[in-house]
Write a protein that binds this DNA or RNA. Structure first.
Length: 906
RNA sequence: GGGCUAUUAGCUCAGUUGGUUAGAGCGCUUCCUUGACAUGGAAGAGGUCAGUGGUUCGAAUCCACUAUAGCCCACCA
């Protein structure tokens, strides 16, 4: 083996080997399936720490299951990310001085596809750097042919079932981009605004003179005076005694002169403003809901680009909204309607793309009725059919699902799945019955041809042609394709073997921020279209944060780049470190130094492997099989490591079964570093039976590598080959994941908890002597005399190995209770005494001892009190009581010895 | 305002149904380049588990309140 591990070369080599060798691929058929779909990253994306965490967890689960022998599929892919991708391409166009409108829809979409072809693979290549064992032969794209088919079918089915409708709704509207924005696409920012107090005269009251107050009016406070022409009511709280007498009356809308009712609604906050609100259903989301409850008219007074329309009144028609605000406020003042103006700090929504102030606006959009879909999805989690890990996330899921709102699925973009709804062009013969209530005739079908047939049948006009149909210009929300991801990627709506075998998937691993957008919707779609929830477990992990706890973002410059970390430390180091420092329970703060853990561990593994190789070479018996130890006597240390290995194997399996990725990393780290390297390797160096010990080391090493493989795929593969555990062409990916030793083997080797504890006790004794040496500043070169008071007859056998470890010229054994005045420490092995032969400063030592006695006395006192408490003795488990007794006795003995010592130094 | 979560060593975090004198990594102190490894080894210092009260023989763990921090939703006319 080389002196240093070349991670870069190794990682490139093995990934190529795995991918080209089809190691990530399985065919449906035999065995128990285990499948996972990746949360598809945006095709515009580049790999960030969130991906690294998310995908590391998935790869650990997937590699582990594969090694267990499950027929495993981890399906990769990307999301077409409508608005983000369109934005990227628009930016590129801008550099050429063009807008998308200059190209026209078709050419623009073509242009986006070209962009995708050229740059869309970036993240897919970056994922390979992580070592993901995704089956690239099944890679999908939410906008590929199959997924598009699925989207069209789903839309049509939901429409036929009456679950999709087109309706007026209040949406966040960006006047500059000309599109509806999802709630998460609106950024709220603090704003210094004003509160305009406006008087609405009560009908029947006398009109005052201009500039003077009306005698009888209601005072409304508003931050949006320009929406006043759209008011269709004013509202008060039903419990507000101040205004109870007004409810049911009508008031005059200033300037417009219309009469509007005074209504009462719980939405109104008595404490805020004047306690009276103007209701503008077409321009405020809350007012919209109030309007629905009270059957109010919705008057849209603005155009798509936020200019006033004719409904705003002749004077304001054509004005920009801010211009209108000025003009209208001036007119209110002139008319005596304006009482006063107040400063107020509030929040105003901005478009996340162009930063224009978002307008709440009534518009025709497509919606999915969510309630009927949500109910079975709630039930699936309630019944335990689908589980959240950690379980608490189900609360958040229920909270959202039980208050679910209809989903606005139309977007005024060009890049995305075109809505499969068609209307007849104006000049086409539509037939008499299609006109009437102002509703347009809509034909929803998966293809234009099918829509045409429907149109012909509906209108009775057989002469209609495709050219007479006009497709809805909008596209669907990106999530409308991702919510089908677990089955559309397996071939649905076709009946494929993959779908049959791998659906439902087993685990879905994602961060908390898309539980609503994605997880909940996948649940609904899976249950509705496949009749089965799309996965069995939903594993939610935290978010990766910067060292100061803030979100990582490129603009802040506080983000770590996983690719840089891979370059500097290796993919294994990145994976292991992130697994070790991340708990599912909460967010993770990371800084660069954290990744040294994984890098150092990689080095440790490499060096330990070198040790094994060298020792075997020296012995001239390279690669002895564990079977060569059968029937041979094993030392306590040999049996100790075998027991520890067995424990580790069981532990890691149990831990991964419970998705405790972090604990698994810790367990395997501790097993390798503490048990194998610090413990057994140190023993092997001086083992009296090296051939046997090396065979054992070889065996536990191979088990450790396999336990580690899900976390550190590359270095484990490399070392497994270097040490000859695998032949050329074989891979650790397909090696069996260790489950521990058989009961028969353990019996034959004489393994037991007792032996394991004995060796731990022996090591404790060694540590105690080292500590005593350090306390009394005995130089390392000085060989000391050690005495051990023990009743354990096994101890004497260890005298030789103790000598070396303690750097003792002699180790003497005496019976328990021997009266020795020497510095000592009590261990499970026995009490160890260190002969100093007058090496210390007596005064200082005497003082130190006094302090120590005081400290231990405190404990003895409280322990005595505890043990004299009848209730404790009666209720506490036996082992706890026994342990307490033992500790008490031990500490009493400690004090006795210290007192002897004190006399010695007095 | 509604919902959720956190507060344990200087830092980042474990601590699984309540039960030893509360652990790990990093950092820090001291010592050690002995043939796997200084990206290492040995030893050590450092915590009244945010606060107050309650339940209990026993609380970091369960309950209530308080303080502080964070997240999500709704967002204020």
């Amino acid at each position: 083996m080389d002196k240093h591990y070349d991670a870069k070369a190794s990682e490139a080599k093995w990934y190529k080997f795995w991918e080209e060798g089809g190691c990530f691929h399985e065919e449906p058929g035999e065995g128990v399936p285990y499948s996972v779909v990746i949360p598809p990253p945006n095709v515009t994306g580049i790999l960030h720490m969130g991906h690294a965490l998310n995908q590391t967890i998935q790869d650990i689960l997937v590699r582990w299951r594969r090694m267990q022998g499950r027929n495993t599929l981890w399906l990769p892919g990307t999301d077409h990310a409508g608005i983000a991708t369109q934005n990227v391409v628009e930016k590129a166009l801008k550099k050429e001085g063009k807008r998308r409108q200059d190209l026209g829809r078709e050419a623009f979409v073509e242009r986006v596809w070209e962009w995708k072809k050229q740059y869309g693979g970036t993240i897919v290549h970056q994922q390979r750097m992580l070592g993901n064992s995704t089956d690239w032969s099944r890679e999908r794209f939410t906008f590929d042919e199959g997924c598009s088919k699925a989207v069209a079918k789903v839309f049509c089915q939901l429409f036929d079932e009456g679950l999709i409708y087109k309706g007026n709704y209040i949406v966040n509207w960006c006047p500059r981009c000309g599109t509806a924005l999802a709630n998460d696409e609106v950024e709220h920012e603090p704003n210094h605004g004003h509160f305009w107090y406006v008087r609405y005269p009560v009908v029947g009251s006398e009109k005052g003179v201009a500039g003077e107050p009306y005698k009888d009016y209601v005072m409304v406070a508003t931050t949006r005076p320009e929406t006043l022409p759209g008011d269709t009511a004013v509202a008060v709280n039903p419990k507000d005694d101040r205004y109870a007498h007004l409810v049911g009356k009508t008031v005059i809308l200033p300037l417009a002169g219309r009469e509007i009712p005074v209504i009462s609604d719980d939405y109104v906050d008595r404490e805020f403003g004047t306690g009276i609100v103007k209701i503008t259903p077409a321009h405020d989301p809350n007012d919209f809901l109030v309007g629905k409850r009270h059957g109010l008219a919705e008057i849209n007074i603005m155009t798509d680009d936020a200019h006033m329309n004719e409904l705003a009144g002749e004077k304001y028609c054509g004005m920009d909204r801010w211009e209108c605000r000025k003009a209208l406020v001036a007119d209110l003042e002139a008319g005596g309607y304006l009482d006063h103006i107040e400063d107020i700090d509030n929040q105003v929504g901005h478009c996340y793309r162009c930063h224009e102030t978002v307008e709440s606006r009534l518009s025709k959009q497509w919606f999915v009725k969510m309630k009927p879909l949500a109910e079975p999805a709630i039930a699936a989690v309630k019944s335990g059919e689908v589980k959240f890990v950690p379980e608490r996330w189900s609360k958040i899921y229920f909270n959202w699902m039980e208050n679910i709102q209809d989903w606005c699925i139309s977007r005024q973009l060009w890049w995305g799945h075109r809505i499969p709804a068609y209307t007849l062009r104006a000049n086409a013969g539509a037939g008499e019955d299609s006109k009437g209530k102002g509703d347009e005739l809509i034909f929803v079908a998966e293809t234009a041809e099918a829509a045409l047939e429907k149109a012909k049948a509906r209108t009775g006009n057989a002469a209609l042609a495709l050219a007479d149909l006009e497709q809805d210009p909008d596209v669907l929300d990106t999530w409308f394709s991702s919510w089908l991801w677990p089955f559309s990627t397996l071939g649905w709506p076709e009946k494929t073997k993959d779908l049959d075998y791998y659906y439902p998937t087993n685990d879905l691993v994602t961060a908390q921020d898309i539980i609503f957008f994605w997880v909940a919707r996948m649940m609904m779609a899976g249950i509705h279209f496949m009749k089965k929830p799309p996965f069995k477990n939903i594993v939610i992990h935290g978010i990766v944060r910067a060292a100061d706890g803030s979100k990582m973002s490129k603009s802040k410059g506080n983000s770590l780049d996983p690719l840089e970390l891979i370059d500097q430390y290796s993919a294994d180091a990145l994976r292991f470190s992130i697994a070790l420092i991340t708990s599912l329970e909460c967010d993770t703060k990371v800084n660069k130094e954290k990744f040294e853990i994984g890098r150092n561990f990689t080095t440790k593994i490499w060096n330990a492997a070198k040790f094994l190789e060298m020792q075997e070479a020296a012995l001239g018996e390279a690669g002895a099989d564990i079977r060569s130890t059968f029937g041979k006597p094993l030392s306590a240390d040999d049996r100790h490591i075998l027991w520890a290995c067995d424990l580790a194997c069981r532990k890691v399996n149990d831990i991964l079964e419970a998705y405790r990725i972090q604990d698994g990393a810790l367990a395997v780290y501790d097993f390798f570093w503490t048990q194998i390297c610090d413990g057994y390797v140190e023993y092997v160096k001086d083992s009296p039976n090296k051939a046997v010990s090396l065979a054992i080391l070889r065996d536990v090493f191979w088990k450790a590598l396999r336990l580690l493989h899900p976390y550190m795929p590359f270095v484990t593969e490399e070392v497994a080959h270097q040490l000859g555990f695998l032949r050329d062409g074989e891979t650790i990916m397909r090696a069996k994941f260790p489950t521990g030793y058989s009961g028969d083997d353990k019996k034959a080797w004489g393994l037991s908890q007792e032996v394991y504890d004995f060796v731990n006790a022996k090591r404790e004794a060694i540590t105690a002597i080292r500590a005593l040496r350090a306390e009394y500043k005995v130089p390392p070169a000085t060989w000391v005399k050690v005495t051990v008071a023990t009743g354990d007859e096994r101890a004497a056998v260890e005298a030789e190995s103790l000598k070396k470890a303690m750097r003792a010229e002699s180790v003497e054994f005496v019976p328990v209770g021997s009266d020795l005045a020497m510095p000592s420490k009590i261990t499970a092995f026995g009490t160890v005494y260190l002969s100093l032969e007058g090496l210390v400063d007596k005064a200082a030592e005497s003082k130190r001892i006094a302090g120590e006695i005081a400290k231990i006395s405190g404990f003895v006192k409280s322990a005595e009190a505890k043990l004299s408490n009848e209730n404790f003795v009666a209720h506490a488990p036996e082992a706890v009581v026994a342990e307490a007794r033992r500790k008490l006795a031990e500490n009493k003995e400690k004090i006795a010895q210290l007192e002897k010592l004190a006399k010695l130094f007095a």
